[in-house]
């Protein structure tokens, strides 16, 4: 069990990671500085996808401690997702075209 074995087991994910790094760079590279703050905020909401992990953990929890910790994790993750998207929307609401 070494690094090679790990790479072998996760080869698809590793390809995906490398691709996504380039996609992320490409998506962001031509942004006017006006949109930097909303974009950071939007990206912040998207990494809230970690909540899926929290839901899985909580759904499989056996025993009170795991359940409580899972509960907190889901609440925190939801804060990240909902708060993130709502704040971003509020920022962007102000960019509506005028006359």
């Amino acid at each position: 069990m070494g690094i090679l074995e790990f790479i072998h087991q996760h080869i698809e994910m590793i390809y995906l990671i490398i691709l996504m790094v380039f996609v992320g760079i490409e998506l962001i590279s031509h942004v006017p500085s006006v949109l930097h703050t909303p974009l950071m905020s939007g990206a912040n909401a998207i990494h809230g996808v970690v909540i899926i992990g929290a839901i899985i953990v909580m759904g499989q929890a056996e025993g009170a401690l795991a359940l409580i910790l899972g509960f907190i994790a889901v609440v925190l993750g939801t804060l990240n997702v909902v708060g993130g998207f709502v704040v971003t929307d509020r920022m962007l609401e102000m960019f509506k075209k005028k006359k």
Partner: peptide
């Protein structure tokens, strides 16, 4: 989906 969302933000955030 977790992997894609996370890495996207990781790389885009670094560029930002």
């Amino acid at each position: 989906v977790m992997l894609i969302g996370g890495i996207l933000v990781g790389s885009a955030g670094t560029i930002l």
